[in-house]
Design a protein around this nucleic acid. Sequence first.
DNA 1: TTACACAGTTTACATCCGTAAACAAAAGAT
DNA 2: ATCTTTTGTTTACGGATGTAAACTGTGTAA
Lengths: 143, 143
Amino acid sequence: MEAQTQLEISDAEWEVMRVTWTLGSVTSSQMAEIMAEKMGWKTATVKTLLGRLIKKGALRAEKNGRAFIYYPTVDEQPSMDEAVTTLFGHLCQMRVGQTLTDLVDKLTLSQNDIASLQTVLAEKAKTAPEEVDCDCLPGGVKC
Amino acid sequence: MEAQTQLEISDAEWEVMRVTWTLGSVTSSQMAEIMAEKMGWKTATVKTLLGRLIKKGALRAEKNGRAFIYYPTVDEQPSMDEAVTTLFGHLCQMRVGQTLTDLVDKLTLSQNDIASLQTVLAEKAKTAPEEVDCDCLPGGVKC
DNA sequence: TTACACAGTTTACATCCGTAAACAAAAGAT
DNA sequence: ATCTTTTGTTTACGGATGTAAACTGTGTAA
């Protein structure tokens, strides 16, 4: 079967997904209220985004009387992982390390997050190469 | 003065920037040749992208006889940092730690990259909170 | 000088995105 | 049995993007 074609969720749509993921399920009126406060969007805008997410298959709607209740059809963590992995995949591999360091320096991480990262890093250190080459030019041209 | 308004560089444009950053300067014919191999793009496509990047101010063109030589006007590392920071800023803050861990697990990092990360993490651990709250809903609603 | 080959500039064009208004159907209020 | 409110569907519309062809000016080879 076809592996779920990378559903492209746009920035605005992503905000709708975040709320849905957090609440587990939402009605459009609920979402409209939340987005009005969080993003300053009109109800019409929210309706459009919900519709597009349904069409893209990122949300599922279950009829409940007059209206629908919306549920996410994709999980949050995998979606986040994919978004991040895709971005890093488009960056110069020689510089992802520095980029990551700069990022970690700015982010707020919990004690547990830090511990997990340290564990993963310690493990990676065992087999990490001395250096990573730039991959911005085709055919492994010197950089 | 106006702080350089976040120049939005699209995915396709980003590929052109990577090559320019790596080479320091390029002619359009050079870029066309490289992108034909790396991305399978027609010369016309490359011309369009170079033009758009000039217009956006990400590249600068210096006349050299009949043609131009293109130079980046923004640096690579800051651009990468910004792209990454922006993405993470749109993710549930409660989950960025896990996301980062998943990412690091997949990336290829050099020994030095790992060492740098470990240093930053050790420092952060000193003041890191026990946990980070979800910020997907407005007004700090419970999650 | 004359025609050719590059390099840059314009135009093209379908699709996606952000942001909504307009319209329609159905449920509830009177 | 209507009028109104709620909720979903259709239409809108300018700008960004990916992808490129067409047009133009000008050194260059003949």
